[in-house]
């Protein structure tokens, strides 16, 4: 897992995004135990307090839960995970839409573009 972090944005936000994506995609399976804050912080090369802050936010969003002695676990709530996946995908879509508009594409053109390029990729 690569932790590519941008120093000019708050790190805790980025950590949160990365973990959220992993949960949404199933890379961190539902109900699975998460590595400790310290371990992940060492892996990511960040301050444990910053990682802790990301964890706290994920907990607030009900994506992970803490069991006092056992540790931290990914939620088993499939619906919640699906929502998270959807939200992340939406955010990407917005970015894409904005960029395409910047390039001068109209809505129908965008859809056609995507369809043709996608199919091209599948055939080729």
């Amino acid at each position: 897992m690569s932790w590519k972090l941008d120093s000019d944005r708050p790190i805790h936000t980025q950590l949160q995004e990365i973990l959220q994506t992993q949960i949404a995609s199933g890379a961190l399976p539902p109900g699975s135990k998460m590595k400790s804050v310290r371990e992940l912080a060492t892996e990511a090369g960040v301050n444990p307090n910053t990682m802790q802050r990301a964890f706290a936010e994920l907990e607030r969003l009900n994506l992970i839960r803490t069991e006092r002695t056992a540790g931290r676990f990914v939620t088993e709530d499939a619906a919640r995970i699906a929502v998270a996946k959807d939200e992340i995908a939406m955010a990407q879509l917005e970015l894409f839409r904005k960029k395409m508009k910047q390039l001068g594409f109209e809505k129908k053109e965008i859809v056609d573009f995507v369809r043709s390029k996608w199919e091209e990729e599948e055939d080729g």
Partner: peptide, 14 residues
């Protein structure tokens, strides 16, 4: 440091 990133929109180095 996070406060600097939030308020200044820059890395600490910058």
């Amino acid at each position: 440091v996070e406060k600097i990133r939030e308020e200044q929109g820059k890395s600490l180095d910058a």
